[in-house]
Every structure is written in C-alpha cells, then in structure tokens.
Design a protein around this nucleic acid. Sequence first.
DNA 1: CCGCATCCCTGAGGATACTG
DNA 2: CAGTATCCTCAGGGATGCGG
Lengths: 125, 125
Amino acid sequence: MGDKLKNGKISDDCKRHFKAINDTLYILNGKWRVMIIACLASGKKRYLELQHIVEGIGPKMLSKELNKLELNGLITRTTLETRPVTVEYELTEYALSLKSLTDEMGAWGKQHREKVIKDLHSAGI
Amino acid sequence: MGDKLKNGKISDDCKRHFKAINDTLYILNGKWRVMIIACLASGKKRYLELQHIVEGIGPKMLSKELNKLELNGLITRTTLETRPVTVEYELTEYALSLKSLTDEMGAWGKQHREKVIKDLHSAGI
DNA sequence: CCGCATCCCTGAGGATACTG
DNA sequence: CAGTATCCTCAGGGATGCGG
C-alpha cells in the first residue's frame, strides 16, 4: 500500500484500499455504532442495558442505530414473550469479524491516553 | 473482555475498554480524519494532492482537519520556500501506530463488499 | 499553491413525553 | 420494558471568494 506510481499518481490498489476504508466508515458511521458493537461484543444485551452502558445515548438514537445495525446484518433482535416483554440484542456471527477492529481501537486508545498523560507530565516539569 | 460480572454488571475492565475506544473515536471523529490518515499513510502529500485523493472534501474542511491532526501530534506540516509555496503533510512516527487500524478497516471493508455482492447475487437467483 | 474568512444550511443528534 | 413521536438545537460541513 505504501507505493505511489512513478508519475506521482495514486495506484489503483491504493484507490481500492481507500474505497474499502470508506465502506467500513460508512457502516460504522455516526457517534454510536462502534460503541454499540463493542458493547455487544461482550455478550448479548437488552435495550436498557445498552442504554446504560453506552453513556449519553438517548432512546431515539439507540433504537435508530440498532435498526440500522440489524439492517446491515450485524446484530439480531430477539423478543422474549415475557411480561413485560424482553428484547435481546446480539452480534451476528458476521459482526464478530469487527471485533479485531474494536479491539484495535481499544488498544490504541489505551496507549494514546498513556502517551497524553506522559506528555502532560513532562510538559509540567 | 467477554466477561460480565455475576450480577450482570459490566466489569471495570470492560468500562476501561469502552473508554479507550471512545478516546480513539474522539481522535478519529468526523467524516474525514481516517481517510486523511490512510492517505498520508501511503507517503507524504501536498495540500492539493490530498484534496484530490480524499474525494469530496473541500478546502475548508481539509485545512481544518489537518490543523486538528497536527494539534494531536499525528501529522507534521512542512512549508517549502518555493514560488509559489509548497506544503507537505506527513504522518508522524506516532501516527504510524494507527496504520494497523486503517489497514484493518481496509481489510474489513474489502471482505464486506464481497459479502454484500455475494448476498445480492444469491438473492437474485 | 495554499488555505483562511464568510455565509448558509442540512441533518445528526438531544430532550421529553407518551404507548403497547 | 421497549420503544415511538415530536420538537428543537447546533455544529459539521458545503460553496464561494479573497489574500499571502
């Protein structure tokens, strides 16, 4: 991927790579998708559980995002016929392929936080 | 990460993981950051090169995003004293740690596109 | 060539209240 | 409990023009 053609133009491989990244970005776009997926990656959850764990999200956004994720085949919705009803959301097999991405994000965020703290520290001295 | 505590609550490890993901999301937020980074990951680029490769971005957003990325220590800006001036943007050493993320996104997007096409295909039959 | 300033506007997202 | 409906805000982002 690290190659330009001699004439300074971007190679077709690169373009494809960028397109692919855009596809991913499109699926994960918005403020909440990744968090919802990451959250469900730790096991099936119910609606209110999600709303509590994904801090800041309101009911409207939550159901909207859940719908889109379901449409994209990333999660399944199961309604249990209890009284009152219980609904469980779960990642599909397919969505599991996103786990390496969310894990990567977690890892990067962790080390980034450490770096920022270290930088602040050495700036303070 | 796949563990809940017995009482159904989320473990502290999980919470830290989510926080870390949010940190990453914060750095990469917006429509353009990831693409800019991915683009620069294939070598230093000039302003107009970026604007051409990152399709759809306007000059305002581009410079705004470049500024933020520079503030976050992810890219460096080099002005060459030519006539007229030339400016080169380049990923910092640090930002290279994001390459695995963008690569992951590229890989996922690729196989996702293939899946979608396959699904459409079998739906067509 | 680079990229700021300005104006404008859409739609993502927030708050709240209500229903099956 | 699990959402939907409604209204509203605001900042992300588009378009254009100018200045170094």
